[in-house]
Amino acid sequence: MESNKYENHILIIFAHPALQKSRVNKVLLGAVRDIESVTVHDIYEFYPDFHINVAKEQKLLKDSDIIIFQYPLFWYNVPALLKEWQDLVLTHKWAYGKGGIALRGKKLFCAITTGARESLYSKDGFNRFTIQEFLHPVSQLARVCGMHFLPPFVVHGTHSLTEPEIISHSEDYRKLVIALRDNKFDLEAARKFKRLNEHMDKVIIR
């Protein structure tokens, strides 16, 4: 780890069961793969049989300052392996409970894609709840583990995105990750928005 060189080390827990079929996540992932002090951990590639190496995962978490869960929102939830990962890796007395301080003070957020447009995620919309509400389980998990939960990075309406639009989103993602790594990110400002990529100009410090 080059933790000395940069302010933060970032760990991206990436979960996509069928990346070969992906349009958006594939490009998003490609945009952050080669950033220094960022570890992309593609868990479906590591654990196709769901046999998660807990010690290895905990080590990765421990060595990071900022953790990103990147996944497509399937049926309003995390993919199955990411759920298994949470259940097995975030153990009692390590991540929470008595003496469970390994993750305390770290930052966590989700980088997700949704097929539906943003307008459908509202009280009166088709999906009846906001993205923030659908993320309650993860936000509470962060709280119990003593982590700061940030608003998500969301790419909405993937079904109707054009290639240039996807590339534009991936550039935003890359900028965001680099800014977070270098502490060039205004957390207080970001908390006021629904998603980190709502007003990129207002949260990234130049």
Partner: peptide, 18 residues
């Protein structure tokens, strides 16, 4: 078997709505 992760048909539907 992988149809659950295949968004092709949903994209087709979305394009019709447009």
């Amino acid at each position: 078997l992988d149809a659950g992760w295949d968004t092709t048909s949903m994209r087709e539907e979305a394009s019709k709505v447009k």
